[in-house]
Design a binder for these strands. Sequence first.
DNA 1: AATTTCTTGTTAACATTTTAACAATATATG
DNA 2: CATATATTGTTAAAATGTTAACAAGAAATT
Lengths: 207, 207
Amino acid sequence: MEKNLPPATVERLSNYRRKLKGINTEETAYIHSHQLAHLMRINPAHIRRDLMLINFSGDIHKGYNIENLIAKIGENIDCIRKQKLAFIGIGDLGRALASEFKNKDSKLEIVAAFRLEENLNDESVDFKCYPISKIKQVLKKEEIDIIVLTLTKINLKEVLKNIVDSGVKGILNFTSAHLDVPDEIYVENYDMIGKLEKLSYFTSCKD
Amino acid sequence: MEKNLPPATVERLSNYRRKLKGINTEETAYIHSHQLAHLMRINPAHIRRDLMLINFSGDIHKGYNIENLIAKIGENIDCIRKQKLAFIGIGDLGRALASEFKNKDSKLEIVAAFRLEENLNDESVDFKCYPISKIKQVLKKEEIDIIVLTLTKINLKEVLKNIVDSGVKGILNFTSAHLDVPDEIYVENYDMIGKLEKLSYFTSCKD
DNA sequence: AATTTCTTGTTAACATTTTAACAATATATG
DNA sequence: CATATATTGTTAAAATGTTAACAAGAAATT
Ligand SMILES: NC(=O)c1ccc[n+]([C@@H]2O[C@H](COP(=O)([O-])OP(=O)(O)OC[C@H]3O[C@@H](n4cnc5c(N)ncnc54)[C@H](O)[C@@H]3O)[C@@H](O)[C@H]2O)c1
Ligand SMILES: NC(=O)c1ccc[n+]([C@@H]2O[C@H](COP(=O)([O-])OP(=O)(O)OC[C@H]3O[C@@H](n4cnc5c(N)ncnc54)[C@H](O)[C@@H]3O)[C@@H](O)[C@H]2O)c1
């Protein structure tokens, strides 16, 4: 399978799927483009175009079969094997994000988290938590694919070096720090403040 | 002032500012487009174009004066008066997001949070926390501009009705629920899973 | 003084994303 | 049966976003 879907489409497909999974298909097995569009707050043409790109056909009158669509999206955007995630920093934010994964049966699996504290009971989470001193060893052994950075930035430099050396392929970065890593590593920065300030700009009267 | 900046530029300007504020201007008072671009992992032309849009000029050799630039960005994207935020749901995620606001001296100010629990000590946060039963009353009285939704979705329908009635202008939504609110309210959905799955798509070998 | 070297500001080209438009087609309705 | 209606799939157009290119000009260097 070639990775020829536009990034914006990939992200939307993931969002469609999550929304569709929330629908009880015993009540409604089909959904129309305009209905899904309404749920997603986007244009119906968008939906039709995205589904065209993954070659998914609907019934001209009943609409799209929800279960089949969920499966088709998976065929197109999921990795064949499970990809392994590790969290670095497991405080308020890390815990909140990690708990989103429960009951999601995604192809992404959290296999480890790291934190400063050497001895700590981590009963609230269902993956293994290590002190950061073990990072080198664990990343290599577990063959982690993707890192989620939710740490406060003490020692970031050394942490990054270990990440790069371990062969990780992508980083989702929630810290405000600059990540000086090679271009081969796909970095996605994620910042709420930017979104909020954009929202503020477009909702405030500027006169 | 007219709101004629492209959304993508507004978001980037906010990000530039946050990055610039992290620089010690006693050491380096100026920054070049390519330096900031490197920090942001974007193209230098991007920076120059964005700053052109807000009419900010740099010194042809020294680059951009950091303090002036921070101020200029503020003039262009900040609301004249402080805008008031309220969080609905103040668990792991709410707390993590709220604590990002400390020491940020933004024009956005958290003035209230709501949660299910009637009696609870909220010592870790520095704004007022109310039980959700008080929502109607508080939103009206405080004239909240923007809502951050970080609740687990019990009673969402009623919560939404109160939000709409109170005249809120924007919602940053972290829940997976569909927000059925009038089009006048600017809704921004924010989902980490979509970003992660996109990251997974572009980092995995699909052959 | 001339030349080289940078960097900004700006334009124009390019790429991507979004949306409108509509033919094709199936069902329902009069 | 003919007509009205609704929805998909697809193309084309419009809008937005990104990047390349380069003139203009300031300092440094020869
Ligand atoms: N991008 C956003 O929108 C956003 C929102 C909220 C928080 N944040 C950022 O997320 C990060 C975490 O926030 P939080 O509220 O969860 O903080 P927290 O204090 O609750 O948790 C921090 C965690 O990181 C660990 N940690 C710190 N330094 C570490 C290191 N060098 N190596 C390994 N582990 C380390 C700690 O042990 C702890 O588990 C912060 O950098 C914060 O700025 C970003
Ligand atoms: N978009 C994302 O990337 C992302 C990531 C993590 C969590 N989430 C979502 O954020 C939400 C909160 O997650 P969390 O980990 O902080 O949960 P949590 O259980 O730690 O906290 C939930 C909070 O919401 C409050 N609450 C619940 N129902 C409420 C109601 N009807 N009215 C008022 N308050 C209410 C609770 O009192 C509590 O304060 C969940 O919906 C979760 O799915 C989204």
